[in-house]
Nucleic acid binder design. Structure first.
Length: 429
RNA sequence: GGAGGGGUGGCAGAGUGGUCGAAUGCACUGGUCUUGAAAACCAGCGUGCCGUCAGGCACCGGGGGUUCGAAUCCCUCCCCCUCCGCCA
């Protein structure tokens, strides 16, 4: 959620930001500003009534104690009707606040000035591309063919048991999953992140805290009986770990990581781009989260991006780093990098990581602040996160890139070690 | 799931209808003292909002109610503890 202070003091910046994101109308913004005015007037009115109420109550108490009961009754009588007025004033205030918050919740974050202007994927800026695209002496197969032939993934039985998008990973396939998770966690820990194993269900307040609600309502699986959501990403529980806290400045940055399955309904997705491991309802991911001082968040994002790229380099996967344009980046982000690996069998790029700086956008909702070392009021922190990394498309890219003419796939040494397979691990049909 | 007991400031812990945003202790910050430190003493020390910047309002787990007045009484939800039941 945008800070009201920003909106009030510099509405033009927000108006520009909305336009950059492709919002043709800034009417919501004008409504918010008007409601903010109204709210403050109503608050003042309400508070004046409360002050009067309190004063009368004290007078009555004083009279009662000095046994001037008649005068006390008199004071009570002058009080008549005040309660109803207070009730009305409170209601007016509440309704103004609710209306304002409803609008604020709909306003996206302000893009950082360095974010390229644009509406479409073609406007995303390729910051760098690393690794050679492979040349094959045969036509490389897509991963779903390889995965079936190598008996790594069972899509059909997954569909039977749960539905499309819920595959079984079998034998070496399951082992490969574990090896990737193990590798990614070990590297994150080595980079100074505290490993956390979070709840896989979160309540509504948490989902609002990181901005999944109301923006992504309908994309999360919702357990109606208990009003809980299956996590769409570890970002939600990991960032909420600190919700409502005031962190001493010298404890910043907080760096945490965790592996979770991620559940996404992916309502509206269909076709070739969702084939195989490309887009699933359940997938595994290791997430990194940082809570940092506002002055250091943009530098932190660069570090996190470099870190995630390092994982791709370890796996020897060709990739490119995109700086997302204003219209393509997420609702909550001020700036966002996506990492894409080359899919040799599909002849296209696959997104395997998204790294973002949220500025104070999540912190405002989370009430997550730090106490300045110099003293003074608590200030909102900046929060960041990134996938490091999401598994299915890594598996897809590994299989497609490293396939041999005979259908076998040999995995990089860093993975075979984590799988407990020594220095080399070759999957054979 | 059943029965009972609890949730108060960073921590501990008073407070059962009025002058309580809240005693006291610890912790923390500043000062005095000291060569320095400790101790002692003095002072400060929650969060948010409104504001004509004087001040005002709200918050004692969340929400609602009773009352002129609620940390205190009532209802409800959440969480924690103890015992029983069930169970990986």
């Amino acid at each position: 959620m945008l800070e009201l202070k920003t909106l009030r003091e510099d509405p033009e910046t927000v108006r520009q930001a909305l336009r950059r994101r492709g919002w043709n109308s800034t009417r919501l913004l004008d409504d918010a500003l008007a409601l903010d005015q109204a709210l403050r007037a109503r608050m003042t009115a309400h508070q004046e009534l409360l002050a009067r109420n309190r004063k009368t109550a004290k007078d009555v108490g004083r009279l009662m104690r000095s046994k001037q009961f008649a005068k006390a009754e008199e004071a009570k009588a002058t009080h008549a009707g005040l309660k109803q007025q207070i009730r009305l004033a409170a209601h007016d205030e509440d309704s103004a606040r609710e209306a304002l918050i409803d609008i604020l919740m709909m306003l996206p974050n302000v893009p950082h000035p360095s974010v390229p202007q644009g509406q479409f994927a073609s406007h995303n800026q390729v910051v760098r591309q690393v690794g050679e695209l492979p040349a094959f002496g045969f036509k490389p197969k897509p991963h779903w063919v390889l995965a079936e032939r190598l008996h790594l993934v069972d899509f059909a039985r997954g569909a039977k048991t749960a539905g499309a998008g819920f595959p079984f990973y079998v034998g070496a396939g399951a082992r490969l999953q574990r090896a990737l998770i193990g590798l990614f966690l070990a590297e994150a820990i080595r980079a100074g992140y505290l490993e956390i194993q979070p709840p896989l269900l979160v309540n509504e307040v948490s989902a609002r805290g990181t901005g999944q609600l109301p923006d992504k309502e309908g994309q999360m699986y919702h357990l109606r009986d208990d009003d809980l959501y299956l996590v769409p990403t570890a970002e939600v529980p990991l960032t909420n770990f600190y919700r409502g806290e005031i962190i001493p400045e010298d404890s910043l940055p907080l760096k945490i990581c965790g592996h979770t399955p991620c559940w996404r309904r992916e309502a509206g997705s269909y076709g070739k781009t969702v084939r195989g491991l490309n887009r699933l309802h359940q997938f595994d991911k290791v997430e990194i989260v940082q809570v940092v001082h506002p002055d250091k968040s943009y530098a932190a994002l660069e570090t996190m991006t470099t870190y995630a790229e390092g994982l791709l380099q370890m796996l020897k996967l060709p990739y490119r780093t995109l700086l997302m344009c204003s219209g393509e980046m997420g609702f909550n982000q001020t700036i966002q990098y996506d990492l894409e690996v080359w899919s040799a069998g599909q002849d296209r790029w696959l997104e395997v990581s998204s790294l973002s700086n949220f500025g104070t956008f999540q912190a405002e909702r989370l009430k997550l602040r730090y106490r300045p070392q110099s003293g003074g009021k608590p200030q909102l922190v900046h929060t960041l996160n990134g996938s490091a990394l999401a598994l299915p498309r890594i598996v897809a890219a590994l299989l497609e890139l490293r396939q041999q003419a005979d259908g076998s796939v040999s995995l990089p040494a860093c993975l075979s070690r984590h799988a407990g397979m020594g220095e080399s691990w070759t999957l054979r049909p």
